[in-house]
Design a protein around this nucleic acid. Sequence first.
RNA 1: UGUCCGAUAGUAUAAGGGUAGUACAACGGUUUUUGGUACCGUUUGUCUUGGUUCGAAUCCAGGUCGGACAACCA
Length: 552
Amino acid sequence: MSEEKSLNFIEELIENDLRTGKYETLVTRFPPEPNGYLHIGHAKAICLNFGLTQKYGGYTNLRFDDTNPVTEKTEYVNSQQEDIKWLGFNWKNELYASDYFDQLYAFALKLITKGLAYVDHSTAEEIAEQKGTPTAPGKPSAYRNRSIAENLDLFARMKNGEFGDGVCILRAKIDLSSPNMLMRDPIIYRIKHANHHRTGNAWCIYPMYDFAHGQSDSIEQITHSICTLEYVSHRELYDWFIDELEIFPSKQYEFARLNLTYTVMSKRKLMQLVNENLVSGWDDPRMPTISGLRRRGYSPESIKEFCERIGIAKRENLIELSLLEFCIREDLNKSANRVMAVLDPIKLVITNFQTGKEEILIGENNPEAEDKGGTREIPFSNELWIEREDFMEEPAKKWFRLAPGALVRLKHAYIVKCEDFKKDANGNVTEIHCAYIPESKSGEDTSGINVKGTIHWVSARHAKTAEVRLYDRLFTVESPDSEDGDFKEYLNPDSMQVIKQAYIEPCLTQAKQGLGYQFIRKGYFCVDKDSTPEQLIFNRTVGLKEAWKPKA
RNA sequence: UGUCCGAUAGUAUAAGGGUAGUACAACGGUUUUUGGUACCGUUUGUCUUGGUUCGAAUCCAGGUCGGACAACCA
């Protein structure tokens, strides 16, 4: 009996193609347009394309689909490469659609020569008008029957810069009554006198997506060109160009793009958040970008695991954020060292522990690790910071923490009993007084006392401080895309909470960027990229799963 | 109201004519020096109507619902 994981529909296709000998080597590609930062949806496509060739052999190219000079920048090329590498994938060839501009131009000439393309001087409005509607056929342009010679001449003059932007375009001559609007003489070249991030001013005509993508696939002998569902209707055109150009028959397959709850995924919307300063940048830890997730503390493994778990299918989907959070918790639970930090401090005084005395306690770093992650020294004294929420003057039902007369264990230290507390004029608790039980020392407890609750703490005298940033979902609704009105109306005003001065264990001043830490009982945190030794900054990656909530 | 794609628990994803399974979520329990982790358990599902068949989530037909497509964007 086989325990093999079942195949998704693309894997089935590929296994079949390989088995029947249709292809000997699998070749895929990841083809981003360098006009923004990559997000978790791209990660799904990256994992798919690279994962397939890792599994079945062959290779994957990275190809930048840079056919629109006005939106593309080298900054984006660089960030996209960095993100793919960070995820742990290596491309075989680094390619650019702009590498093929000469070849693509020759393809266009071939089409013209076959009488299958013409230069159209209609305006954009006229072309839209003539296009018809899904239920009514289109009408031919006045320029549709220009001679091959005239088209050749005009197209050469387009290339030579004799016309301004928008004066004319090159269209494929296909079928004006096709039920597929894309087949109604699609535009394949337009004039743009603009500087291209790689070809500079060498060209003033640029191919449209449909006249670049399939041909680029074909040039690279991509066997399986995998894209998202919105390109389904492009497939007919994709195949038409390959047929007419008589070039390598790459095949296009489509899968459903990723949607995640409580965020947006389109580059256009993410760019809006950046441009309108609603987030701090593409790598804001609240963004669903790969760089944002990285800064938030997500590991490449957790993202790949997530992509593995969501699967590949053709049905529209909206994945719950909780699955992504599960993936990073699962990873960090095994790898993150445990430390103590107090985010909302209140003073706890141990009345029977000598003032000025210091005791060094030993704590294991990670109970989940094979070797327990080693140990560290934790200073203890008579004045500690503990979490304000760990004390209740009038304890709720099933309250395991501190309350007048209650006993609780201080993690890695002693059991204490609350004997008294002080309040200010406003009735806020300002100080808690406890007695500690010397025989209850962690690891050598002979007190015989059992307590339900264990709380974290930091010695006030030894504590260091840090800024801590707590993040929550970026939007208040599951699917901002499908709500009425502007998606920005649904931004969560409390998506970031900054704690200017939290108290942390001394060892945390040595915290390394790129490593995850668990602040015991508070969640997983990482060092922010803006952190300095003078001003430490931690980001909360994700909270711990919370199983208990006090009942009102 | 055209063409195409899709529809299985709350969310995803399997079952390829023969026991509807898995994960996350939710809920309950055991363990625990993190109300974490681990472990155990529970709840919840084949869009609809017909047909073919001994037998249908699966094949066929009609319907319903959702999505994509009419940029000189990709």
